[in-house]
Amino acid sequence: MFEFISQLFAQFHAHVFEGTVLPLLHQAGFGGYAEQAFDATELFLIGAIEVTLLALILGALEKWRPVEPQDEEAKRVDVLYTLLNRLGLLPLMMFFLLMPLVDGLDGWLRMHDIIPAKIEDVFPALHQWPVVSFLFYLVVLDFVAYWLHRGQHRFDWWWALHALHHSQRQMGFWADDRNHLLDDLIVDGVFALVALAIGVPPAQFITILVAGRVVESLSHANLKWHFGRIGERIMVSPRYHRMHHAIGFGHEGRARGCNFAVLFPVWDHLFGTANSMIEYPKTGIRDQLEGRAYGEGFWEQQGLGLVRLIQSLRPGKRMHP
């Protein structure tokens, strides 16, 4: 079944690439970038299919069991963020910014006879079990994502950027990609370095990326759903992540928040930041109640983020609500 779907997608991918992308590329004098363009086309098509399925499935679920009624207008900018991100524009931008840096670093290491280690060096049997090494990479990257997320809440300068993500007061599955571009760049940069350090192959990196995106869309959904006593400890649910965005819970306390995990809640349980209350509080940032604005449109939000980043770097200035 999986092979059948895979071949079906391959035919579609080849058809779009050979019929449209490759001739245009060659005409524009970039024929030699065919392999990169082939991968980018795949990323775009996967994103398009993913967004369509998410809109259909999560859209239906949100109608079925919503936490709260929502204003469609408030979601519009989040749809833009999602399309920019999932259709590959932002990942490609990051790719072209980050990959030369990562390759440059890797190349420098090789010239000094350092070849980054990989999990298979320790467990050679994994050469024959790529699924196991894939799971290992997934867990390591999720662990890194947890600590990056802790940093986004801990440091004022980083919170100045990350607050944008928390400023959506009507949580929904479109809200997942509402991020400041600089915040995305930092997070993706760290991910790329970690991926290099542990030897994640590019093809698996895309699978990890897509798997993460699907779970994160679900966890942001306006959906009254928790995974039960055991399930809540295995995978981040809409209930679990809503607490992270909740006014009064998500940005308060010693850790400046709770439920930081992206995929696996185990990190919150290990490091004492889990909140297991089965509740669905109002979301947003506390100071929004006092009238603080985070911008309405894309450019306003991006601009405000940068202004507040600069403000946060001034001595004595505290940004966190």
Binding site: H127, Q128, W129, P130, G199, P201, P202, A203, Q204
Partner: peptide
């Protein structure tokens, strides 16, 4: 016909 597909390494 393809008779077998075996993992060999990355790229």
């Amino acid at each position: 016909t393809e008779t077998k597909r075996i993992p060999v390494g990355k790229e």
